[in-house]
């Protein structure tokens, strides 16, 4: 089967600092592909390059076989690429419902609508409510997103990307800063996506990564040093060296 996402020879340097050093990566249909690596390995840069927020110096990105390297972020989003942000990027002055509704709007409403469209918007709201319910934020629908707790914001972030009915989900540390219970909920949520939505998961929580990932790639100093199943990665001496050299243990 052809991969949903294919990254070929991606390079990016800021001055002398090479953050993407010829990265090749594939996310196959239905799989959760985890990308791990020590801090400063260039994970978020890679996500930004895939999402279109950062332009690589060289290399190509393909989504479902289509070359999207030159497309701006919003056009990639329209092709079904959804991104959850590492630093929570909910819209603080919108309610939870509005945050999700506008995500559906972005999916459905391609042209400008300069006047209110009540019928359309009611439909969006209903769908948004269902998604919000499914991530467990049902009681917070009318709360301003800015006043949610950190963990709730992480759930809302997921609700927003789910509302996009994504062809590929780029999840940049979805569990960062979430508490134990919320992490469990997020893991369950991603578990549910398995087999339907392919996910590129960037995560520091190794328990979550090993529980969820079909395959794992390890990024160190802008290079993928290993790629394989959880067992292969655990056994890989190069990976162990890279991780033992830093503060983060591979097995938490």
């Amino acid at each position: 089967m052809s991969p949903t996402l294919k990254v070929e020879g991606l390079r990016k340097a800021y001055g002398g600092l090479v953050v993407s050093d010829g990265i090749d990566l594939e996310v196959r249909p239905g799989e959760i592909h985890a990308l791990i690596g020590p801090n400063g390995a260039g994970k978020t840069t890679l996500v930004s390059e895939i999402a279109g927020a950062v332009t690589p110096d060289a290399g190509r990105v393909f989504l479902e076989g289509r070359d999207i390297t030159g497309l701006p972020p919003h056009e990639r989003a329209r092709l079904g690429l959804a991104r959850s942000f590492q630093i929570t990027a909910v819209l603080p002055r919108f309610t939870v419902l509005e945050n999700v509704t506008i995500a559906i709007q972005g999916l459905e409403c391609r042209r400008f609508r300069f006047l209110p469209a009540p019928a359309l918007e009611t439909g969006w709201c209903e769908r948004a409510s269902a998604i919000i319910e499914s991530v467990g934020l049902g009681r917070r629908v009318d709360t301003l997103a800015g006043s949610l707790s950190h963990g709730e914001k992480r759930m809302l972030e997921m609700a927003i990307v789910l509302a996009r009915a994504p062809r590929l989900l780029l999840a940049d540390e979805p569990m960062a800063g979430a508490g134990g219970e919320e992490t469990a909920a997020l893991v369950a949520l991603l578990e549910r996506l398995k087999g339907t939505v392919p996910v590129l998961l960037i995560e520091h929580d190794m328990d979550a990564v090993f529980a969820l990932a079909d395959r794992i790639s390890v990024l160190v100093y802008g290079r993928i040093i290993a790629s394989g199943t959880a067992a292969e990665i655990r056994a890989n001496p190069e990976v162990q060296a890279a991780y033992l050299g830093s503060d983060e243990g591979l097995v938490a």
């Binding site: 999402a51 927020a53 701006p72 972020p73 329209r78 990027a89 819209l91 002055r93 609508r113 209110p116």
Partner: peptide, 24 residues
């Protein structure tokens, strides 16, 4: 109050998010 207006107010709060939702 229109869908268009929502995008304008949303973009003020977080551009990257709004772009990632497919809005130009």
């Amino acid at each position: 109050a229109s869908p268009f207006g929502k995008v304008i107010t949303a973009a003020r709060q977080n551009e990257a998010r709004v772009e990632s939702l497919g809005f130009d």
